[in-house]
Each structure stands twice: as C-alpha cells, then as structure tokens.
C-alpha cells in the first residue's frame, strides 16, 4: 500500500514539473532544459530554510517559489533574447552551473553528500508524516499548479503565448512585448517547478545534487512531449505513464541494476517513437518538432 502511495506522490511531483514546463515548451514554444535546476532550487531553498533557520513550511514553500522565479528572471532576461538553439544551450549551461553550485558549495549545500534530515512539513501545527498525508499535500499542490496554469493558458495572456509560439514577428506587429511575455512565463514555470522541489525535499527528507541533473530535465521534457505539448491534461497523462511504466518493469522481475538501464532506454525509445510518429504526443495540439518554419523569426524578405 505504501508503495502505491509512494508512486502516486511521485506522479503528483512530476505532474507539477511537467505541467509547469508545458507552459514554456508547449504553449510558448521555448525549449528549456533547465527545469530540473528550478526543481532543485526549490528543494534546496526549502531544505536549507527548514534545517538552518527552522522556519515554518509554508514560508519555506513561498520563499522557494519566489527564489526560483527571481532566478528565472535573472536567467531568462538575457537568454530568452537568443534564438531557439542558443536558448537551449543557455539553459543547458545554467543547468550545469546550478548542479556545480549544489555539488561544490560543500559548506552550504552539503556538496555531493547532500542534505539529510530535512524536517517534515508542519502546517498550522499539523505535522505531515505518513504517506497518505504526503499524498494529500502533493495532490493539493498538483491541483493548485494545474489550476494556476490552466487559468493562464485560457486567458488572453495565454492567447499571446500561443501567438508567440507560432509567430513572434506577427505578435510584435499586433503590439505584444514578446520578450516580456517570455520572461514572465519563464518565471512562472520556474516558480511552479520549485513547488515540486519542496514536496520532494520534505517527503524524501534527504536531497543531493544528483536528483537535479540535466537527465532529470530531459525526463521532464519527455513527459511533456509524450503527454502532448500544448495540452495540460497531456502532461498529467504523461506523468502517470512515465512514472508508472518503469515501476511495471519491476514486476517483470528485472534485477534493479538492469532495470535502471532499461528505464533509460525505454524513455529514449519512447521519445524517439513519439517524435517520429506522433509529435503531438498522446493528446497535444502542438507538434513540437514540426514547427521548423524559421520564417517566424525574421521580419520580411
């Protein structure tokens, strides 16, 4: 039973990550491979606050979101001006930098040894400790993330995001400050990803830098693309499938060491299959890899 609850909690965490990344990748057409970095920022901010300052959970959660969003702005303002490919590289660089900081600032972050003994969340005197309680917390925060994101994409703001995804020049020509919209949505995505980090840190009670690598970013991108870019429900479906699927491998009786490798291969294969034959994912509306009309970037000719 605990095992199933554990899987469900992971699904909630990855739903938060994929829904928030979908705002960037699926709705705005900006491919960031730094999502795990913001996930990590959230986890470390909440963990350090709880460990060092013993501040309450909700404050830590709020601060984690704000920190990630601010870092999102600092990274986003210069890098979002770059063309697609260079932006991907810039986010990759940022991902590496965050990993190095977490790994090397030993006094502060614990370095490779990580931070053990993260206190469990206490909300208005109620300590969250059982799996079921964590599932409820994670579930509520996942619902909040979904609601928040869906409010955005259904609004006129979301209409502009789609326009930016399809044609930046036209968006400017109808008076939209494209750069500002991109930075704003990047900050929102970063802030929401931090929520997942906070849940993860307080649930596992131990974090180290290996949970927030570029591989993790790519895993989240896989969820978005396989679930369906540009469709929030797709991200939920994607999270369920990609988190649950490898668990099924256990029941096939593969030894753990091999299962880990098989899992990586499986994700890779799934991603390739979807990119080739169903680029819009399970239920997406935006075919990610067919949007190669680079006409959308230059004014006229």
């Amino acid at each position: 039973m605990e095992y199933i609850l554990h899987i469900l909690i992971l699904i909630c965490i990855y739903t938060i990550l994929s829904v928030s990344l979908n705002l960037l990748v699926g709705y705005t057409g900006i491919l960031s491979i730094a999502h795990a970095a913001f996930y990590g920022v959230g986890a470390y901010v909440a963990a350090l606050m709880a460990l060092r300052l013993e501040t309450p959970f909700l404050l830590n959660l709020g601060l984690a979101i704000v920190c990630a969003a601010i870092i999102g702005a600092i990274v986003g303002v210069p890098s979002l001006r770059l063309k697609d490919d260079y932006f991907v590289i810039a986010t990759f660089a940022f991902q590496i930098i965050i990993f190095s900081i977490l790994n090397n600032l030993v006094d502060f972050t614990g370095g490779p040894l990580g931070l053990p003994g993260i206190p469990q969340p206490e909300i208005f005197g109620f300590v969250i400790s059982t799996h079921l309680e964590f599932l409820i917390l994670a579930g509520l925060l996942a619902i909040f993330t979904y609601w928040f994101s869906s409010r955005i994409v259904k609004s006129p703001f979301g209409r502009v995001l789609k326009a930016v995804r399809e044609d930046e020049v036209f968006s400017q020509a109808v008076g939209k400050n494209v750069a500002s919209f991109k930075v704003q949505v990047f900050m929102v995505g970063a802030g929401l990803a931090a929520i997942a980090g906070v849940i993860y840190a307080t649930y596992i009670t131990y974090i180290d830098p290996t949970s927030f690598t570029v591989m993790e970013s790519i895993f989240i991108i896989s969820i978005v693309i396989i679930g369906g870019a540009g469709n929030l429900k797709g991200s939920v479906v994607g999270a369920v499938v990609l988190v649950a699927l490898p668990e099924l491998l256990r029941f096939v009786g593969l030894p753990n060491a091999i299962a880990a490798n098989v899992r990586q291969i499986l994700y890779g294969a799934l991603l390739v299959i979807f990119m080739l034959w169903r680029p819009q994912g399970f239920i997406g509306e935006f075919a990610f890899n067919t949007n190669t009309e680079d006409k959308s970037k230059k004014p006229d000719g």
């Binding site: 020049v169 968006s171 020509a173 935006f286």
Partner: peptide
Amino acid sequence: DLRLIRQL
C-alpha cells in the same frame, strides 16, 4: 509575406 497566427 502574409502573417497571421494560422493555428488560432
């Protein structure tokens, strides 16, 4: 070269 958001 005619621009609109064709998907919208």
